[in-house]
């Protein structure tokens, strides 16, 4: 029975966790995250870095592992972190706790990334996220706790990753975990039952919160449309965001394709972000970059072959 102020677990650097069932040993490096339901540590096994989530409450571990296993079944870009191991370990001589191990994603929180690299990144990031959300929905789940803190941009691949599955809820059930500002129930724009539009609402608030003009935490009135009006940098997206906030998209791909149309029209940099926001040129985007390099290589090859003949 646990009832404490923080259901978190304190481990020290160099502490070794020996799995009771699978016999793998992990060496703790440092704390990388702390949630309401447990702690996440960077750990080492052999030469490999992994992320290890441990909780005072074993049901938290079981529940998240169940979700990660479901996610693993899906082909293509991973929906969540890849699950590597599930086990129990003694963290002191009389305290045995459950933990699970996943790949370590060396990433930057999306809000920091956008601040540094410019708002134009919202497009490729949104496309990647909406594709993931759509796949999650097809599996029969809702991501639930969608917010910038749960979105990391991988430093190497520059791909957006969803890192916390604590809010993932089966369609039709009560949302398991949410965060006030991203919850449509809080804004009195719907219930808290898991459906596709719940995620798309949260997605729209995520975009809003990334606009430097928006001060979502200071809003006294519960009126998300007032927040929408603050979002000057996202002006071209206003109609799309409005539709997402009022639950008018039937699925994530619908929203994605409408974003794609605006994509070409580009966002206007404003005074406050002119320095950081580079003018969004198409060759700035990783996806476009990859595509154009493929075309170049093919054209080169083709030219080469043609020349030889």
């Amino acid at each position: 029975m646990t009832s404490s102020i923080h259901p978190t677990v304190r481990l020290t650097s160099q502490q070794r966790l020996e799995g009771i069932w699978n016999k793998r040993t992990y060496t703790i490096v440092r704390l990388i995250g702390e949630g309401a339901r447990g702690s996440i540590y960077l750990a080492r096994i052999g030469n490999r870095y992994v992320a290890l989530k441990i909780s005072q409450d074993s049901s938290v571990i079981s529940a998240e592992v169940n979700v990660l296993k479901e996610f693993k079944k899906v082909q293509g870009p991973p929906l969540g972190p890849l699950l590597l191991d599930v086990d129990d370990a003694y963290i002191s001589h009389d305290l045995k706790l459950a933990f699970y191990v996943m790949e370590y994603i060396d990433g930057v929180p999306v809000s920091d990334w956008v601040k540094r690299e410019g708002l134009s990144w919202l497009f490729p990031i949104s496309f990647q996220l909406l594709k993931k959300l759509h796949k999650i929905h097809q599996l029969g789940y809702i991501y639930g706790d969608l917010k910038p803190d749960n979105i990391l941009i991988d430093r190497k691949t520059k791909q957006a990753r969803l890192v916390d599955v604590g809010g993932v809820t089966a369609l039709g059930r009560a949302i398991r975990e949410y965060t006030t500002w991203f919850d449509r129930g809080y804004w009195r724009l719907g219930d808290r039952r898991a459906d596709v539009t719940y995620d798309l609402f949260a997605f729209a608030v995520c975009l809003l919160s990334l606009d430097p003009h928006v001060t979502i935490h200071n809003t006294k009135e519960r009126d998300i449309y007032k927040v929408l009006n603050q979002a000057k940098s996202l002006k071209p997206l206003t109609p799309i965001l409005k539709k997402a906030l009022s639950g008018q998209y039937n699925n994530a791909l619908e929203l994605k394709s409408e974003l794609g149309v605006i994509n070409r029209k580009q966002l206007q940099p404003t005074k406050s972000n002119r320095k950081t926001a580079t003018n969004p040129k198409i060759d700035f985007w990783p996806e476009a970059l990859g595509l154009s390099s493929i075309i170049l290589v093919h054209a080169g090859l083709f030219y080469f072959l043609f020349y030889r003949i």
Partner: peptide, 10 residues
């Protein structure tokens, strides 16, 4: 529940 293997616990 804690005494069960992780699979069963899931």
């Amino acid at each position: 529940e804690e005494d069960l293997p992780p699979e069963t616990r899931g």
